[in-house]
């Protein structure tokens, strides 16, 4: 999920950069040097997983996975997503320099938000953990889409209808992400439960 270059206005771009810088600073502070290889290699796996196209009806969607990034890395989601977006720009030219701040916020803020909301719940018994994981996956995509909409609407009030369309278009993605996140959390709880305990 990202906004292309050249769409947003100056104030929106600058606010994105400032807020993202704060988030990244907090994330880096919480990420000690000896935890960085883990964050980096996990983020390489998130990057690869987000390239997977999952079939939905006649078409397919690619995964965003910011919910699960939040669950596993907490505040570390900010620097990890910043770096992933930089690599995305280098490898596919999606996004770019001026939108790096806004795009980091769009994905990382919902990730951290969901970490606080659901981080504890997914550690409980499956009856609570799995629905929580579903909501976590769906909500993080929804909030991301809402932030895309807000960035567009703050740029130009006339983009309001575009914003509604962006959010609506993400509804199927939300459901798929919820299902994938729930199964993935169920799997991690069985195989490597301490990955969800930061």
């Amino acid at each position: 999920m990202h906004i292309s270059e050249g769409v947003l206005s100056g104030p929106v771009l600058v606010s994105g950069i400032v807020l993202a810088a704060v988030g990244v600073a907090v994330g880096l502070k919480k990420l000690d040097y000896d935890r960085i290889p883990r964050a980096a290699i996990l983020s390489a796996s998130f990057f690869v997983a987000s390239l997977i196209h999952v079939p939905v009806g006649p078409s397919s969607v690619h995964l965003i996975l910011n919910g699960i990034v939040g669950l596993i890395l907490g505040w570390g989601a900010f620097p990890v997503i910043l770096v992933a977006l930089t690599l995305q720009a280098m490898l596919f030219q999606f996004g770019g320099i001026t939108t790096l701040g806004v795009n980091t916020m769009i994905m990382a803020l919902p990730a951290v938000f969901c970490y606080y909301l659901f981080g504890r719940l997914v550690g409980r018994q499956p009856r609570i953990a799995l629905p929580a994981a579903f909501v976590c996956g769906a909500l993080s995509v929804f909030l991301g889409a809402v932030m895309v909409g807000l960035a567009l609407t703050f740029t130009d009030e006339n983009f309001l209808k575009v914003s509604y369309l962006v959010v609506t278009a993400h509804l199927p993605v939300m459901i798929i992400e919820g299902i994938i996140t729930a199964f993935c959390v169920a799997f991690l709880k069985k195989v490597q439960p301490d990955m969800l305990r930061e």
Binding site: L42, A49, V54, L63, I180, C184, L188
Partner: peptide, 29 residues
């Protein structure tokens, strides 16, 4: 295909990818 089995398979695939990434990180570090 568009069914729960596919989503479950992908989710487990992604899960094992994360687990292996964490293991690998340990060794690399």
């Amino acid at each position: 295909a568009s069914n729960l089995h596919t989503y479950k398979t992908y989710a487990y695939l992604i899960g094992i990818l994360f687990v292996r990434a964490a293991d690998r990180a340990e060794r690399v570090y």
